[in-house]
Amino acid sequence: MDAGVLAQYVFNGVMLGVIYAMVAVGFTLFFGVLDVIQFAHGDVVMAGAFVGLATYLALHALGIAAPAVVVLVVACAAGLGMALLGAIIARWLILPLRAAPAFNTLLVTLMLGSILRELVRLFYPNGSNPQPFPRLLPSASANLGHFTLRLDTTLLIVTGLVTIVIVNLVVRRTRLGLAIRAVAQDSETARVMGIDFERVVLVTFAIGSALAGFAGVVYGLYYNEVNFDIGLLLGVIGFSAAVVGGLGSIYGAILGGFLFAALQTIGSVALPVSSAYSNVFAFAVVIVLMTWKPTGLIAEPASERV
């Protein structure tokens, strides 16, 4: 294969990996602090993309057009909006269900995901159909043989990686992060240390969901199109990435995200069949990996939780 073509595949794969890792980190954070799977998380990504899109249209209507300002406001609206949604989900759905069997949380969040999807489909203007997402980033590009280095994609990759690194630093280096890790290991002893358990849970859900909101905007800016049902596949991919990496470990989630993107890319270019089989291939390999290493690639006890 031509080196330029190969580089192009790697470049596009890294872009997908960043999006998947952003989603997977949320799953792993939620599981870390509360041992729950938030199945509506993929739809939070979708909701973030639509909040970003609606914010863009509002700014457009107000006549604000400076691209840097627009991108910043769109990203912040999606991030803050989803942080709020995540905290609401934790406060009124996840925490009250703590005493109930884990199946209830699973079912309730699955239903919530359907509600979010249907609300966007029904109430967003023409929501049943894909919506164009504006190109808000500089579209310059450089051609190096068969490899096109696009500035907008590069910016998205860098921004996505930076947000993941920031979340990781918060968890590892701050007082709040210490509280999150303590709750993840032993929530009762964490409370005896004077940690407000419920607050830590709400903040963790806010952080993970804000990351999902950003991921939604990154998705929209990359594909220039969003649809009410993108959360379904993104949720399953993010969840598989977190599980195959080692649920509860941030590094595992990042690894899993990039692994899934790599598998999709390999599935679409290296297989003798149509590229439409890329997801079939990627999920099949993940299933094999999960059978081989049930606790994830970065498995306990080598990894620390969260």
């Binding site: 890790r181 290991q185 032993d186 002893t189």
Partner: peptide
Amino acid sequence: KVFPKLTIEENLRLGAY
């Protein structure tokens, strides 16, 4: 009930949370 996967200093700092 020490936090097994936190360092000694992190455990102590949690005492002064």
